[in-house]
């Protein structure tokens, strides 16, 4: 069983900044993440952006940049709803938000519990934020893996492409802690679509349970980042 995917674009946030894969391939190192402002992503005022917890803002930023890189970042008001799926792997998830929320519960035995914070105590909430902004109606799931290699969401995305459930998937990692495979806080998202064997756009491949990039086996997401930096089959393609 083999399935191949083309990379349409990518977005990232790391301690040294944020951007798209067309601009640069990031290096993830431990450090504080940049303070991202609404203006960095969206031209129009967005009241929700400032209310989001740090995990959701990080994930929304990474995916928005990936969609921009793939020229798929049109607002739902412009293009209506579209079937694009979202899958994110996280290790620490929204645990810091969970702590912040429960800190509103403990003092008065729940009388001052914050409904605003509670809404962000599900690690998939930020995918809802992405979906409603861009009108994305595909599957939207957050994964946690015991594999520890940071490839779980990419594998999941290829499975969705293989089974024909989805034709475009935004897949990647998002963590405000350094507990995950990146060993640093940050986000990395790729926009993937089906590719046929022999298609020169094909970069990512799932073959006999092995994930490969440009024919090179991937043991972890760090292998993928290294190959992307080395420029092995990294053409960002456009939807024709």
């Amino acid at each position: 069983m083999k399935t191949m995917a083309a990379l349409l674009g990518g977005g990232w946030v790391c301690s040294s900044g944020f951007g798209t894969l067309s601009q640069a391939v990031p290096a993830f190192t431990v450090g504080a993440l940049p303070q991202i402002q609404r203006q960095d992503l969206f031209a129009a005022p967005d009241r929700r952006f400032g209310r989001m917890d740090p995990f959701s803002r990080l994930g929304l930023t990474g995916i928005t940049l990936a969609l921009k890189d793939a020229a798929l970042d049109q607002d739902v008001k412009e293009v209506g709803k579209r079937r694009i799926a979202l899958v994110a792997e996280t290790c620490g998830g929204c645990l810091e938000t969970d702590r912040d929320y429960f800190a509103t519960v403990v003092p008065e035995q729940g009388a001052l519990a914050s409904p605003q914070l509670f809404a962000y105590t599900l690690s998939n909430t930020f995918l809802g934020e992405v979906a409603l902004r861009f009108g994305l109606t595909g599957r939207a799931e957050v994964l946690n893996s015991t594999g520890g290699n940071g490839l779980c969401a990419l594998r999941h995305a290829l499975e969705w492409l293989l089974t024909g459930e989805e034709t475009i998937v935004v897949a990647g990692l998002c963590d405000v802690t350094d507990w995950g495979a990146l060993a640093a806080p940050g986000a990395l998202f790729l926009v993937l679509t089906n590719a046929e064997a022999g298609d020169e756009r094909a970069g990512l491949c799932l073959e006999n349970d092995a994930l490969k990039w440009g024919g090179h086996p991937l043991a972890s997401v760090n292998d993928l980042l290294r190959l992307l930096r080395e420029g092995e089959s990294v053409d960002i393609t456009t939807l024709s």
């Binding site: 998830g93 599900l122 690690s123 998939n124 909430t125 599957r139 939207a140 799931e141 957050v142 994964l143 946690n144 893996s145 015991t146 594999g147 779980c152 999941h156």
Partner: peptide, 9 residues
């Protein structure tokens, strides 16, 4: 092998 948890609320 790898085990996964799925969070879709």
């Amino acid at each position: 092998g790898e085990a996964r948890n799925i969070n879709a609320a």
